[in-house]
Amino acid sequence: MWPYLLKRILATIPVVLVVMVIVFLMLRLTPGDPAANIAGDAATSEDIAELRVKLGLEEPLPVQFAIYAKNLLKGDFGESFYYKRPVMSMVADGIEPTLSLALFTIVIACLIAVPLGTLAAFKQGSWVDRLIMAFSVIGFSVPVFVIGYVLIYFLAVKLEWFPVQGYQRIGDGVAGWAYRLILPATALSVIFIALIARMTRTSVLEVLNEDYIRTARAKGLPQSKVLLKHALRNAAVPIVTVIGIAIAILISGVVVTESVFVIPGLGLLTLDAIQGRDYPTVQALILLFSLVYIIVNLLIDVAYTLLDPRIRY
């Protein structure tokens, strides 16, 4: 196991390098000039040219990359072109809201989706199964912003149970933090409920046809025990894979939800940085997201060994 982990960790180095180069080049090759944007509409060409020099954008690309890589090795991700703040402090500000939203969402999704999927498999072909799968199709099909607006309209504007927008930091009170996350996490969880429920149903169905399930039933075990202890645990590997991928997606790509519910997380930071061509911020964020994907995948692989003793590395 440990040699495997070490190998996987070492394998991240070339991946990170490739990501660094691709992101660096893509940003510079994308049309748009951060200096022109920063200088403002009434700035002259001279002002903009002067600013490009100050931002280091007039250096040849290899020189720019060498400076970037050298600073990165020192743990310096650079300074935002706009805010004149270290990029990492801005990223750090955005991590808590995004992570909170992601975890809240995934908890809601798992609590609902796994039982629903299991139930659908257990009641295969019945109206319960069809109802759950119909919900699943709808969950896939309706865009998250539509769900968000509907929830806001009914639960925030009409019933006034929740605020329309905003995020409260966990340090300012856990109750307020959780309260403000309910609507956005619910809106965002719908698609993941659909995804995880379908995957759970398929996996559990496969397992339910196995001989050992029949044996368990023949031994007279209660259905709940058969389902939870024997079927679900053995069906867990693909479910955990989907959940892991969902977490990675949630951390790196919840722009729409963050925008509709005004959550100052990494999604909005990424969007703003890309729109403004804030190269240092985009580079740091994409690097972070690639690391998240790598770590989540690694954790999923480790989880396999816990869920299925036959899997060994």
Binding site: Y153, V164, Q165, S259, V262, P264
Partner: peptide, 17 residues
């Protein structure tokens, strides 16, 4: 306060946020 979504702005204004 930065709110990008126009619909959310209107809802927040209507609710006094």
């Amino acid at each position: 306060k930065v709110i990008r979504d126009q619909q959310t702005k209107m809802n927040a204004l209507s609710k006094g946020e």
